[in-house]
Nucleic acid binder design. Sequence first.
DNA 1: ACCATTTCATTAGCAGGCTATCGATTGGGG
DNA 2: CCCCAATCGATAGCCTGCTAATGAAATGGT
Lengths: 139, 139
Amino acid sequence: MADVLRLLTRAQKLVSTASDDAMRPHGVRIGQNLILEVLWDEDELTPGELARRLHLAPPTIVKTTTRMEAAGLLERIPDPLDGRLVRLRLTAHGRACQTPIQEARRLLAERATADLTAEERAVLEVALQKIIDAMSEQQ
Amino acid sequence: MADVLRLLTRAQKLVSTASDDAMRPHGVRIGQNLILEVLWDEDELTPGELARRLHLAPPTIVKTTTRMEAAGLLERIPDPLDGRLVRLRLTAHGRACQTPIQEARRLLAERATADLTAEERAVLEVALQKIIDAMSEQQ
DNA sequence: ACCATTTCATTAGCAGGCTATCGATTGGGG
DNA sequence: CCCCAATCGATAGCCTGCTAATGAAATGGT
């Protein structure tokens, strides 16, 4: 009996590597496109809010957004009402790469799941969600 | 329509985190148990051979095994026939933790897939394998 | 027998994750 | 009003992964 968790790990790693390869030509690295996708939908979020939405630790967001700031994708704006908060605002460049990056991501998803039947795709979705639920329970 | 790749990423991350938590009490970190499992099956492999079997880059193996050597899990032995090669040999300690670690891993796999029906499990396996195959094709 | 190519392990340097800690600001209770 | 707790971003330090470059050893062709 094959180890489902190993297949899961291997599949995710291959997808992740391919995703990085797909994003690179657009000057964006693998975790960065996730941050961009959230900000494209809602700009000027704080690092903490981004961390919650992406299920990442705040320092991960801070480090990555610092690099993204250096790359000219976004800028840090102090919140006028709360001195503790920082707003991450997309630059024109950060907004400009939305279309090509989303298209690259769409192509990747298409390629990855091209050989799956509709039923397999549906069951895969359900099964992954069940795993996520099981692992999200405390303990 | 939900993004299957996001579910895949999220499921893998949760499993990976839980795996790390499960391994930690045994003094082993997340990537290290994979190396151990290969060596339990066949000892005294070289870093390059391990890298091929685990689909990792050689420097990753070198760095991790260096830490494992410091932790007393294995030792480096020069190959008597080929001066370029290094053999990674498990210590008594590295062999001793096999049972508890495999048990922890088994429990984790059980917990992760507990809510899946037999059919869902089977389809999940097939679907993940198809994704792996699709992403393994060059380009 | 020599020299160039290949094949290894290793090192250096980077990105993406994490936890623990620090410092500053906000907010609430006395 | 003031101080203490909560909240937030940033920093330090760790592990895992990668590519590129280094250096040593083996191999093969001439």
